[in-house]
Simulated assay, not measured.
Amino acid sequence: MRILFLGDLVGRAGRDAVAAALPDLRRRLRLDLAIVNAENASHGFGLAPDMARTLFEAGADVLTLGNHAWDRREIIPFIASEKRVIRPINFPTGTPGAGSVLLTLADGRRALVINAMGRLFMEALDCPFRATEEVLSRHKLGAGVQAAVVDFHAEATSEKQAFAHSFDGRLSLVVGTHTHVPTADHQILKKGTGYMTDAGMCGSYDSVIGMAKEAAAERFWRKMPGERLQPAEGDVTISGVFLETDDTTGLARTIAPLRQGGRLSPTFPILEQAPALLE
């Protein structure tokens, strides 16, 4: 199974860039599954239903959220009916929506997508490790599901790494989000799980984690409330990670970062079996 995960898309610029790029990315990478973290889609804070629909129309299969899940209140009734938008699984019992979704692809293969949120330097939530364990106890990789992906929305790199090693061999991919900075540690762990500490963001990197740099920097100088932060509107870099799995085991065969456009150095997965697709 070929999977693309795109990191936090930020504001209108991020939304528009991802919506424009996804159809071509699906074609060039022959994707089976496209997952996008969309918790910063609305002016950098939250996701609105119309934005979710646009991303689905462009080719996203699942949208994940994070600590800004409820910043747009319209998402609350929407997430109750739209199962392809998921919020962190370790939100308290009774929270609207679900923290995981099981998709059946057109060819009958099944993919499990989980959204979990870390607790170090974040909100006080239920345990993401135990919440993920509970779901995986019902969906065995390589048996009931052919792929299983976790978007681990967390601040601390240590927590992300500990999470990945804890579930090595039981997930196809653990990819971090939230810090908006792509890390250079994409790898396949010893038992076969693909891992990347942070996928980065789909937004302008001439910014402070996607927000206009002047107002964001001013907050560090003055340590006083200032104007509301606004997403930067510069050229967007689309950042994410590509994974190809073995359909028998569900484990990773190849993993590669993806970056295109904007200011960061570009990199695109090489499909060894189909080089013509990269033309």
Rank of each mutant, 00 (worst) to 15 (best):
A199H: 03
A184E: 09
A215P: 04
T183K: 09
I238E: 02
M211N: 03
G200R: 01
V208K: 02
D247N: 13
R228K: 14
G240W: 07
G250M: 11
G210V: 08
A199I: 02
M224P: 00
D198L: 08
E218A: 15
K191S: 13
I188Y: 01
I255Q: 02
F242D: 01
A216Q: 04
R219K: 14
G200K: 04
D198G: 06
T197D: 04
G194H: 04
H186M: 10
A216F: 07
S204P: 09
Y205T: 01
F220C: 07
T237H: 14
G234M: 15
D247P: 13
A215I: 04
G226L: 09
A199Y: 02
M201E: 04
A184I: 10
P182I: 14
R253W: 00
D198Y: 04
K223Y: 14
G194D: 02
G226T: 03
A217R: 12
P225R: 05
R253Y: 00
G226M: 03
I238K: 03
F220Y: 11
V241H: 03
M201L: 09
G192A: 06
K223N: 15
T248G: 15
S207G: 06
L229H: 00
T237P: 10
T254V: 06
G210L: 08
E218K: 15
A184C: 13
E214P: 11
A199D: 00
R228P: 13
A216D: 04
G240I: 13
T183R: 10
M224H: 07
G203F: 11
R219G: 07
I238V: 13
C202P: 05
Q230L: 15
A232W: 03
G250Y: 12
C202F: 06
D246V: 09
G210T: 08
L243G: 03
E233M: 14
K190F: 02
D235Y: 03
M196D: 02
G250T: 11
M201I: 12
S239N: 12
D247H: 11
L189S: 01
I188H: 00
L251R: 05
E214Y: 13
R222C: 15
Q230T: 14
I238M: 08
F220N: 07
E244W: 01
A212T: 12
G194C: 10
V241P: 00
V208S: 04
G210D: 04
G192Y: 03
M196Q: 05
R253Q: 05
A216E: 04
A252Y: 00
E227L: 13
T248R: 15
S239Y: 06
L189F: 08
R253C: 07
R222Y: 14
W221F: 15
M211H: 05
Y195H: 03
P231Y: 09
V181L: 12
I188P: 01
T254F: 00
E244H: 05
G250N: 13
G226V: 10
E227W: 00
F220A: 10
G203L: 10
Y195T: 06
G226Y: 03
G200N: 06
E244Y: 02
E218T: 12
G240C: 13
R222S: 15
T245G: 06
T197Y: 10
G240V: 15
S207E: 11
G240P: 10
K213E: 15
I255R: 00
D185H: 09
A184V: 13
L251N: 05
T245E: 05
S204V: 11
